[in-house]
Amino acid sequence: TDPCYEEGGAPRGCIPGLVNAALGREVLVSNTCGRPATWACDSSDLMRAHPPALLTLAGGSTSSVCWRSEVLHRVPLNVTLTVPLGKAFELVFVSLRFCSAPPASVALLKSQDHGHSWTPLGFFSSHCSLDYGRPPASSDGPAGPGPEALCFPAPQAHSDGGGLMAFSVQDGSPPGLDLDSSPVLQDWLTATDIRILLTRPSMPGDTKDLDAIVPYSYSATELQVGGRCKCNGHASRCLLDTQGHLICDCRHGTEGPDCGRCKPFYCDRPWQRATAREAHACLACSCNGHARRCRFNMELYRLSGRRSGGVCLNCRHNTAGRHCHYCREGFYRDPDRALNDRRACRACDCHPVGAAGKTCNQTTGQCPCKDGVTGLTCNRCAPGFQQSRSPVAPCVKTP
């Protein structure tokens, strides 16, 4: 069964399952130890390498094999971890496990345009004002009407020496926002890339004095980006296309990497995101099988009471009209054939002499006859008339 359709075939909103979107993805890291090799880290030696691939390995990693930065001696000590997710996801959480003492200051950012621009999701710091110029987050969440990047306490060091940075997108979002009805929340959750900035190591006594920093390196593993492949409610799964790009397996007459538009012939009403209550499927234009293309007309859609705005293009089989529902000039509807029959429209075939024109009644097929002429195609003299020799007046009254 297809989760995007009811048993009876009616469309319903559907979403892909929750996954770790970072799993197996390449992590771009600004700094990794081992080049040149040191006693503790050698990127050319598998046993002593600590590459960023260890951050997103399937099945996780262990603290003995973590990504590690170089040993840093001077400020700024920024190290950047960037994970391109391959396509838009709707985030649920982001977490990173540190293999050594967690940093005292971390910024979490997202991109919605594959890394061209970045916006903050949240900050973690023991000194929010000093590091990020903003107050520590209140326990009530954001005060504003929409989501915002708040500054949370820095990750705590665990007894084993490591620590966990965990961010839930709900942490930055005011309670009560409904994903179906809030474009602001939809925007807040959407990301194509995640970036983690490690900006300050934790020091003994948590000093604010950057000059006091002693040699330090960052070390982490298990970078998880929990989220759902973003398909706008029109797909229940994502797949790899022939070029290896992750795309939604779109239903409901939609297409695009995120099912973000209607398929070419499915433009009888505007594209909309599906909700839990309404699938908002894209509808095929009604062209009675005589056209392969159509376009959307907003004015017609409004005039129809927001029910139908599709206009068929290039009606074939001698049909015409918005829905290819009548016959073009010079043709008439064959009452014995269905409207979607290829031969639903017959040529008028008006008699070249008996008819006064070539265009017949599109419903009855009756050609316009000259005086004294009768018949559907005007090919006979009417009772009381007989054929003359004049093509201008082919039938004259019988003497």
Partner: peptide, 23 residues
């Protein structure tokens, strides 16, 4: 009674050559 169809051969096109349909 069904009248016979118009017989094209009976028409005299002498003065109406420009109206004569192509057959």
């Amino acid at each position: 009674d069904v009248m016979p169809t118009l017989d094209m051969a009976l028409f005299d096109w002498t003065d109406y050559e420009d109206l004569k349909p192509e057959v």
